[in-house]
Computed example of a mutant assay.
Amino acid sequence: MATVTFIPAPAPDHTASLRAAVRYGVLGLIVLAVVGSIVATLLAGMPGLYGALLGAAVGGGFILCTALGVLFTAKLPATTAGAVLLGTWLLKMILAITVLAILKPLDFYDKTALVLVIVLSLVIVLGAETYGVLGVKAPYVEPRAAGDAEPGEKDAQ
């Protein structure tokens, strides 16, 4: 008689969905940067290329920094992670406003391409990150061993 042994596959850790979100977000941003650069160059020439690349960097960098911040603070206590994420959000806002203020008087890029690619990068990278998070099958709870008591069961005895 043959013995059948079932060894379940190990569950992914709690950062697997965050890593997938960053991976898909980066891939989405790369595709947008390439396609947006080609289209903007065809429509507006070299200023369109510069506008598309700047838009991908500003918009994609803005969104990806949030996902990376969550990933890097996933193992920290909740209050520390919250403080770090709030600080990075404030820093991102200051950097985005500063970069856009520096770019405003310059004329080497196409402003329409910049704005369109920023908006598209926000939508595409967020969508790609959502797809990455939803595609990972990770448990929301830690499975307990077969011999462990139910929570509260020890108190009842």
Rank of each mutant, 00 (worst) to 15 (best):
V4R: 13
F6V: 15
F6T: 15
I7F: 09
A9P: 07
H14W: 07
T15K: 11
A16P: 02
S17L: 08
R23S: 11
R23T: 11
Y24R: 12
G25F: 01
L27W: 14
L27M: 15
G28Q: 01
G28S: 05
I30Q: 07
L32S: 02
V34D: 06
G36W: 00
S37V: 00
I38H: 06
A40G: 05
T41H: 09
A44T: 07
G45N: 03
P47S: 03
G48C: 00
L49D: 00
Y50V: 08
L54R: 05
A56R: 01
A57W: 07
V58N: 02
G61W: 02
L64S: 05
C65R: 13
C65E: 10
A67M: 10
A67G: 09
A67N: 08
A67Q: 09
G69Q: 03
V70L: 12
V70I: 10
F72L: 14
A74R: 07
K75H: 14
K75N: 14
K75L: 09
P77W: 07
T79S: 14
T80G: 07
T80P: 07
T80L: 13
G82P: 02
A83V: 11
A83C: 07
W89C: 12
A96E: 07
A96Y: 07
T98P: 05
T98W: 12
V99P: 01
A101Q: 10
I102A: 12
L103V: 04
K104S: 13
K104N: 13
K104A: 15
L106W: 11
D110G: 05
A113I: 02
V115T: 14
L116K: 09
I118A: 05
V123T: 04
V123H: 01
I124N: 00
L126W: 05
L126T: 10
G127K: 04
A128K: 00
E129P: 05
L134A: 12
L134T: 08
G135W: 04
G135S: 09
